[in-house]
């Protein structure tokens, strides 16, 4: 009897072990800086994201040049002076999340922690996130703030009042099961 129970338990524990990787090449990452003098907004719609529900891992990578700004000069300064896109073309995040996320529909709050690499500097970050399972899709959402100074991004004193010391980043990635 005990052996049967054990076998059943082992089988059950393997059930959710099927590959549960979700990914997208079109994740949306936007950031927003608000100061009394100027609002700055940029959007990137080509972030690559992969979420593995069994390993509880999350990975993001994006091209800095894919951020589009409404003003030309802002885009130029962002790429040339701040994140130096020619030298550091990509930003990356890889980490793990806590909390159980089953494949049945629902919204699950998680804590994501891992390494964020930006402007050639890697920092350990922990951010709140949300994983939504619906219609076979997995939507990963997160909103957090990043300090340019933590990533060695220097902002000249001339424009210091126009760029917030904390930049709000928003992520929405609608991922499909990996083929």
């Amino acid at each position: 009897m005990r052996t049967i129970c054990f076998i059943v338990l082992v089988c059950l524990s393997y059930l959710p072990m099927q590959a549960q990787t979700f990914m997208t090449r079109n994740g949306n990452v936007s950031f927003f800086s608000k100061t009394p003098l100027e609002d700055i907004k940029a959007e990137n719609t080509q972030a690559f994201a992969a979420v593995d529900l069994t390993k509880k891992s999350v990975a993001f990578t994006l091209l800095q040049r894919n951020f589009l700004f409404p003003k030309e000069l802002m885009q130029e300064h962002y790429n040339e002076n701040y994140v130096e896109s020619d030298k550091f073309p990509k930003a990356q995040f890889s980490g793990t999340f806590t909390g159980d996320v089953p494949t049945k529909p629902g919204i699950y709050k998680v804590q994501v922690s891992g390494q964020l690499t930006l402007h050639g500097v890697t920092q350990q970050v922990t951010v709140p996130g949300e994983l939504e399972v619906q219609d076979g899709k997995l939507t990963a959402k997160s909103a957090f703030a990043v300090k340019p100074s933590d990533f060695d991004i220097k902002i000249p004193s001339l424009v210091k009042d126009k760029i917030a010391s904390q930049i709000n980043v928003k992520i929405v990635a609608v991922c499909l099961p990996a083929k």
Binding site: R25, Q46, F48, T61, L62, L63, R65, N66, L68, K90
Partner: peptide, 11 residues
Amino acid sequence: TGMLMDVSIVD
């Protein structure tokens, strides 16, 4: 704009 998994074209 470069290459990630695919070559990226925006706008």
